[in-house]
Nucleic acid binder design. Sequence first.
DNA 1: CTGAAAGCGCTAACAC
DNA 2: GTGTTAGCGCTTTCAG
Lengths: 333, 333
Amino acid sequence: MATSKGRPSLQDIADEVGVTKMTVSRCLRNPATVSEVTREKIAKAIEKIGYIQNRAPAMLSKASSRSIGVLIPSLSNQVFSHFVQGIEAVTNKRGYEVLLSHYGYNEEIEERKIDTLLSYHVDGVILTSTSHSERTLKMLKTAGIPVIEAMELTDNPIDIVVGLDHKAAAYAATQKMIDSGKKRIAYFGARLDNRTKYRMEGYDMAINDAGYQKYHFLTSNHSSFTLGRELLDRAMSEYSDFDGVFCTNDDIAIGVILAAREKGILIPQQLAVIGYNALDIGQAITPSLTSVYTPRYEIGERSAKLLLDRIEGLTIDNQMHNLGFTITQGASS
Amino acid sequence: MATSKGRPSLQDIADEVGVTKMTVSRCLRNPATVSEVTREKIAKAIEKIGYIQNRAPAMLSKASSRSIGVLIPSLSNQVFSHFVQGIEAVTNKRGYEVLLSHYGYNEEIEERKIDTLLSYHVDGVILTSTSHSERTLKMLKTAGIPVIEAMELTDNPIDIVVGLDHKAAAYAATQKMIDSGKKRIAYFGARLDNRTKYRMEGYDMAINDAGYQKYHFLTSNHSSFTLGRELLDRAMSEYSDFDGVFCTNDDIAIGVILAAREKGILIPQQLAVIGYNALDIGQAITPSLTSVYTPRYEIGERSAKLLLDRIEGLTIDNQMHNLGFTITQGASS
DNA sequence: CTGAAAGCGCTAACAC
DNA sequence: GTGTTAGCGCTTTCAG
């Protein structure tokens, strides 16, 4: 009976203890259903043999895998790090595992990664975008598992959406600059993903409402600190009398502040700067950065909670969860 | 025959086409072994039905899962983002999937994550540290799969190690400062993980060899820009006449430069600063940061290559792969 | 509280 | 080029 070759199985533990693998299986999932003596013997045997769970059979039977898939666009952005921490705070507590994938803001890669996650029979998926390829949508539908779209809102959700209104946030940030008396405000954008587009729309609307002129400076390059400098140079060579910049993220905003200081431009007197996401580094520079704080940890938590609730069959009251934003006042505006 | 309830299976496609699932299975894994007519019919059926792969049976049979596990300590550090990109460049090309986990520099979490990865029957694992819990080591041994330890070197490897000599790199960086005439050089360290310790040892050795005095300023907080400022304040209140700082990472170094500039300290004349990792932001500030470039992308590539080679049964010539470092000369030293 | 049997979906090995 | 059979390791169901 003892298999004893290759990776240990429940049978190996059962043999060691002198019961059937069924008893061991029960003991692992619900210790209370096994007598205390047996339970202790099994625990010792598992320790001794070094048993490692095997998820394959559970996946094969229609049983749930107690794991969820999470897709993030980038591995080097604190925003998504906080987001995942929020998710894991919930999954840890409720006994689920997270399978993590990143797709570099690329819909095709997203599609491939989702394919892989589904092949592992995840019980649900959390996505960090609201636009997906046709095949992605079809696969998710075929899989028939709950899906959360997180970070941004949409009128056309797959199912549940948890995020914030980036357009409104950008509107508020731009309006704040307008209120402070700035009249020639530029928008610096990088990497043309959805959220950047929403932010630009918010900026556009605020500028329009004020009756001012729009100035877009965009690049499809990945955002970075040096990009802020480049965009500032470009903007200044085309128009010299800006008095404000709303940047699509903090990295660019920091780059702008650093470059502006070198050029002797006074911030915020000559040029007000507002960023987006309110990352730590904004507090390390002088002047400290005014930014839009996005509650990504909370978005992660809420997303996971709703997903697990739905997986476990609870009914969700509403589909759209807007977790808002706040503007953190720095000295740069 | 038609199952048609729940997720589509190979049988559903087989029924649609009028062959057995065996033919479909062959067609998926090795299209050349199936007639062209059948192949096309199967492709259409898969498209129509929306078949999603199921990895569970393959895992159950002793077949390889064609996936590897990768453990990284942090989700918000460009270093590991580059590292994973290097890995995926190789796995994509060779048809493997990556299962990603992060453990926040915590050995216990690493242990749990490895447990999970093994439960998915990954064919191999890439770790980003060389110190692991007893149980981690036992599990990896029991699983009997190839393991790579990446990023740092060790005398006591599990199997293959790919990385660089952080102590030597730190020694070189410190020596460079000494060569430039600096005599009172401090070390700023955060989060006391292995690599930070190696860097401190390199610093210590260089300072000792020069016959100078060591000055350690450490904190176990997570590294960040604001930390650089705090460490500088602490250092200056205890000793006022530093002329150089070697920082355990670029974030801290940037924080130091920004704070020093505010205090009117001239860099590098009054205070030379050297960082570690040579991230993009070091080029965005003035003065640009001198730093130690670590070839993490290449480490990722090499790690993946060696792991897949070993998985596929090739013999690996040597266990220790030192990929070196270079010092990028900025204006801060 | 514990055991026995069936089956999840796929693939390796062997026919034909 | 395609079909048949057996079995991976666990859980579900039904007995005892």
